[in-house]
Every structure is written in structure tokens, then in C-alpha cells.
Design a binder for these strands. Sequence first.
DNA 1: GAGATTATTGTAATCGATTACATTTAGAAT
DNA 2: ATTCTAAATGTAATCGATTACAATAATCTC
Lengths: 312, 312
Amino acid sequence: MVTISDVAKLANVSTATVSRVLSNSGNVKKETTEKVLEAIQKLNYQPNILARQLRKLETKTILVVVPDITNTFFSKILRGIEHVAIENDYEVLLGDTGNNVERERVYLDILRQKKADGMILLTARLESHLLEEIASEFPVVLACEYLEGSTIPTVSIDNVSSARKATEYLINLGHRRIGFISGPLNVILSRDRLKGFRQAMAQHNIPIESFLVQEGDFSFESGYNMMMKFLALDQPPTAVFAANDEMAIGAIKAIKSKGLRVPDDISVVGFDDIQFASIYEPALTTISQPMFEIGKKAMELLIKLINKDQLL
Amino acid sequence: MVTISDVAKLANVSTATVSRVLSNSGNVKKETTEKVLEAIQKLNYQPNILARQLRKLETKTILVVVPDITNTFFSKILRGIEHVAIENDYEVLLGDTGNNVERERVYLDILRQKKADGMILLTARLESHLLEEIASEFPVVLACEYLEGSTIPTVSIDNVSSARKATEYLINLGHRRIGFISGPLNVILSRDRLKGFRQAMAQHNIPIESFLVQEGDFSFESGYNMMMKFLALDQPPTAVFAANDEMAIGAIKAIKSKGLRVPDDISVVGFDDIQFASIYEPALTTISQPMFEIGKKAMELLIKLINKDQLL
DNA sequence: GAGATTATTGTAATCGATTACATTTAGAAT
DNA sequence: ATTCTAAATGTAATCGATTACAATAATCTC
């Protein structure tokens, strides 16, 4: 392996000078710079990043923890994160938990071990004190999911008001028996969407029958199954609001399987606006989330945090 | 920051001993071990991975370069890679090129700078000599796409024979006018699928009219557009084979838009078997690719390469 | 109990860069 | 020509771990 001292030797200068050329720090004579660059070329030298990082105590890498990388919702956010990361010479270390909370825990250690300068969590299902603790020591940003009453910087849309609007859309179409297929209620974002649904219903003085609220898990299958429950009722809902698009599409599939039509017989609204929502037939009405933007904002926030840390 | 010498001081031993406890290398007295572990606990010590990596000249990180992370086809492969990576204590650095060849080039440098122990490429659109060069120096595995006549280890299905089978499926249904929507032909995998299509047609002595082969770019939109071209013909094909599922679904959408039905009026076959293929209506007939398995195999291969390197 | 053997621990070099500080060189000012 | 200042370069410490080698302590053998 070619090291900085090989270059120094060939160029007949000290390693310090080579390093100065490398970092463009000025204060190197033109001719010397040329000599060094020539040697670098000749040897095809690439600086060892590990050594640099150790010396500088920074990794120029950030860790992104994703609950499910095969979900386009998250991969779109990832795109936004990457966009900003590249602009700022950061690399992205990906942690996919596969919806497994235990794996989430493991990734915290990567941060503690200084393998990354900071972390963006697209999932926050761990005990909040664990997150608070690590966020007090390292730069951490939450995106999409958040913690109640936490001070960790967070990027998220207003789920309550978005859900309220989606519900109002259905109410304004004249529906009164509206079913709600919620996400898993241990996730705050699911609770917020449920809250928005309740608010809208209350505002229009529509009582909510308890069996018209069903808890899914954001999967296509759960949407299908919960809709089947609704359809088995004496009086099925005339409209359904699902807390994400996958479940909404599952619901539509269930409705069609009973020979009913969307939206003629039952209206369906989803949440997220994944690409497939528009491709599916009938095209899904949905609440759009600016995924790319959320990712960008989260990364911008994280960089700010990281830089402030360096000043301390 | 707590370092190994802080621990050593507190436990009243040398850093060497602490390191031995850390690595479980044996040869440390029980009582000493306990003293050290206690000190580690008390200080909440986490070894600095950078320092360890520099000393050992390994990163326990592999780089995966993906052409499009929002495509579930690739994220499923990623899952397989991660599965094996975790089992072997590797971390995954993600490089998403957004289908941009230039970005692919940049990631090669990450490997050169020893930021990763090896690389898996899910895309291979760079000049082959560049890839050959880096593969001769570092562990590199190709997955899905490959280079003609290259010696770089590759994991891939047999695209030619799979495409042949898909075509034969349509022929056996009685179709003779079969359209083919190909992927971008600068990618070898697309050429292979086209080759398979041609082979099957030739074997059944069906001449291929040139305008029944159209080049798309693997996107939903291109499938839609190419199908529209077919439908504008005097004699549109009675069946269409699209080189991936996104394009197949685009084609179906085009067919429906003309008031025709699938498969009653026109049959459609796709390739990949993404989740959406089964959710869409009508459910898409498709050639299944074992994505998770491909990822697993690629990672296993890479680990073997890395370990052999260490022996040299 | 002396000598040999093994287990345990310590000392210091090492990985490859960066950078504080020291030194040399070049150019300006007088 | 001498002194002073600024520019250019070099020397060596440093980042935090691992590990070869050395040294010491413990145990065994006869």
C-alpha cells in the first residue's frame, strides 16, 4: 500500500508538506506542489481515510436507521438525505432494522463507537430514555416518527392536521359512516393520525363507533384483513380512511373481492402518496408527504448539529 | 472521551491487558478481567473503532452500489446482503447512484481509500477496464448485472433462459404476434433478455418483426409509452413480454386505457416478481427472481474474497 | 529448593495521516 | 550589508487502539 511517506520520499519533501498539498492549505511553493502532485500521480496514491479520521476524530459518515428499506416511502426519504449528504461530503451508512426493535438498539452502538458523526432515525420505537441519552451525547435527528415531549430535533409533517383533512374530505363527500384503519398504535405517528381522524369526526358531530376503528400494521395484508372485518358488519362503512397507502390498497382489494366498486360503493383515502398509489386502479386518493424534502431537511439539521458540536 | 488508557488507569493495569480483555484473547487472570470489566462499566467505555481499524487495516464495512434504492427489486437484494453482513459483523455502506453513471465512478474511490473492505455492485455501467482494474486490487462482486468476458465474480440468474421460458409461455398460449418491451440495451442484462426472447421465437419458427421490439428504460412510464406504440399499429401484438414488472404494469395500464382487457384481449408477462405484481389487478404473470437469495450469495462470495485477501 | 515451564502482565512500536511548533529560506526595509 | 518579517518546510507529537517482544510471577518437576 502506498502511504504518505512514500510520496514524501519520491517528491523529496516531508510528509507534512505532502499533507499540506493534499489539504490545499496554502503555504506551499508552486514548484513544490507540482513535485508532490507528480509523485502522487506516479504512485497512484490515495490517502488512508482511517488514519485521517482517527487524527481528526471525525468520520464524515452519518448513520441512517430505517425500519424497512423495501418500503418506497423510506427509500424516498433516504434519497433526500443522500442528496444533502453528497453535497457536504458525507457518506451514508445504512441501518435497516427490518421492523425489529432489537436491531434498532444495536445501531446506537455504532454511533457510540464513533463510526459515524451523527444519526438520523426514521424509526423511534426504542425506549425514549435510551434515545434521549444518546441524543444528549451525539448528534441525532428524528424524522417521521418522534417522541412525545422530547427535545431531540425532529422533522415531520403535522400528522394530526393531515389526518383531519383527509377525514374532512370524506365527510364533505357526504359520508358519515367512516371506517379508520390505523397503523400500529405503539407508534406515535399512528396515534396522531387517529387523533386527527377523531378531531374531524368530533368537529362535525359524528359519533365514532368503536368497531369502525381497526388497528393494522401498515402492511398491505393488514389493510385487506381489516377491510374484510368492516365488510362483515351489518352496516359496513361507506368510506374508509387508511393510515397509509399500502393498507389503503389492501382495503380496495378487499372491497373489489366482494364485487363492490371504489369509489362508487365505498370511498377510500390513503396516506403517504407512494408511487404505486397513482398507478393502481382505481388511482388512490391520498395525502401526499414530501418525502424527499423530509430527508433533505433532516440531513441539513443533522449537519448543523454536527458542526455545532465541533465548536464545543 | 473515555479511552483505553483511562480504563487501564482505573483498573490499575496496562492498556495491553485491557485490550486483551476486550478481545477475549484469554491469558488474563480471572480477577484482572473482572477489575477491567468493572472499570469499563464504571466509565461506560466504548472502544474507538477508528483506532482499531487503522491498526488492523480493516473496516468491517462493505460498500453496496445500487442504481436506484427506491426500486424494491434492489432493496430486496439489499436485504439479503444485509442478512449475511450482520451475521458476519459487517456493516453496509450504501451508495445510491440514482441511475447516474458518474456517481458510480465516485464510489470506486471509497473503496480505494480503504473506507470499505470490499464492494458489491448491483450496477455495472462503467467502462469495464475501470471495474477490472479495481477488482484486481480489491474484493469486488457483481450482482444482477455483469460484464462480458470478465473474471469478476458475479451472482446472477440466467437471464437468457428465463426470458426464453417467459416467451415460450406466451407461445404455448397460442400467440404468434408477440411484442417485446426491452430494457435499456446498453445494459447487458437487457440484451440477454432480448436474446432469450429471440431464441424462443426462432425455435418456434416465428419471424420477429422489428417494430415489435421496443426499447424502454425499466420505468413504468416507458412501459406505458412503448405499449401505446404497439397499440397504434395496424396489427397490434396479441401478447407482450416486458423485461421487468414496472414496464409490464405500464403496458397493462396502456392497454386498459384503450378499453381493452388483460389477458382477454392482450396477454402480458413481466419479469422480476416485485411485490406489486401480485397486488395489481389483474395480477401480473411474471418471472420470479430470488432477490433475497441473490443478495445473500453475493455477500457470501464477497466475504470469501475478503478473507482470501487477508491470507495473501 | 533449584531449575524449567507456563501463565500473566507490561513496554513500546505500530498503523497512516494531521498539525503544533521549530527551523530554514527568501524577500523587504533600513 | 544587516536586520526584520513572512513564507516555506521540516521534526516530532498525536489520535486510540493492537500486538510483538520482554519481563515478571506462578506453578511444576525432581
